[in-house]
Computed example of a mutant assay.
Amino acid sequence: MTLKRTLLAAAAILFAAQAGAHQVWLERDGQTVRAYFGEPVENLRERTGGLLDRISGPRAFAADPQASLPIERRADHLEIAAPAGSADIRLVEQSLAPFGRQGSPDRTKGVLLAREGRSETRAAMDLELVPVVAGGNEFILTLRGQPLPRTEVTLVAPPRWQRSLRTDANGRVTFETPWAGRYVAEAIHTEEQAGGSGEGAYTRLRLVSTLSFTVQDGIAWTQR
């Protein structure tokens, strides 16, 4: 392999690794929902023409998973038009290319999942944090509808304070929300599940799911 090809291959691996470490989260403003790709704790939001382009086949929906919502690409986010009166909005991105060497036993397919809101006490995605009661701070982490115990969940609070928690034996976790503003929680589940073919073949599936919601009452905090 020539030096140029070696450098290009190394750059591609680094690019994939950076994208694999990121998450998608949703921020709602009335009937507009914005999907960001990056790291909420660092306020890092990738842009069109860069890593945001990796989110190439997202699907968003409200109450009906089969009724896709329109998505428009903006400079640093994807914009979803939420139907009037809709409660929680979800986004699924399954089109990411696998990362890791082709043919290696750890080649991984990433799936990004995001939910905005805690009004619905039901799961509609493969990996999802579901409130026990609408608007509450206790959640069940579900994997294909079943509680997922002993799994790490990371919560980012409005002042970009971050805390790692674990679900209990019943998949439950409780968040403390002392600040007013938006919270983003992330859960990751990796499993041995082969699929795809050719360059798209993989041996592992990595689900990255976020839940974002806002708290109206609490300690005031202004983003700097």
Rank of each mutant, 00 (worst) to 15 (best):
L7A: 12
A16F: 10
A16T: 12
G20P: 08
G20A: 15
W25H: 01
L26Y: 00
L26N: 04
A35S: 11
A35P: 05
E46N: 07
T48G: 04
G50I: 00
L51H: 13
D53G: 05
I55V: 08
G57Q: 14
R59D: 05
Q66I: 11
E72D: 14
R73Q: 02
R73T: 00
R74E: 06
E79G: 08
S86G: 01
A87R: 12
D88R: 04
V92K: 02
Q94I: 13
L96N: 01
A97N: 10
P98I: 10
G100N: 05
R101N: 15
R107C: 00
K109H: 14
K109D: 13
R115W: 09
E116H: 11
S119M: 13
A124Q: 10
A124I: 05
M125P: 02
E128S: 07
V132C: 02
V133A: 10
G135P: 00
G145W: 01
T151S: 03
V153L: 02
T154L: 03
P158Y: 09
P159L: 02
P159D: 06
R160A: 06
L165S: 07
R166T: 15
R172N: 06
T174R: 12
P178H: 02
P178K: 04
A180Q: 01
G181C: 07
R182W: 00
Y183R: 09
V184Q: 04
H189W: 12
H189F: 13
T190Q: 15
Q193E: 14
E199D: 15
Y202V: 06
R206W: 05
V208S: 10
T210C: 06
S212P: 09
S212F: 03
F213V: 05
V215M: 04
V215N: 05
G218V: 08
A220P: 15
A220L: 13
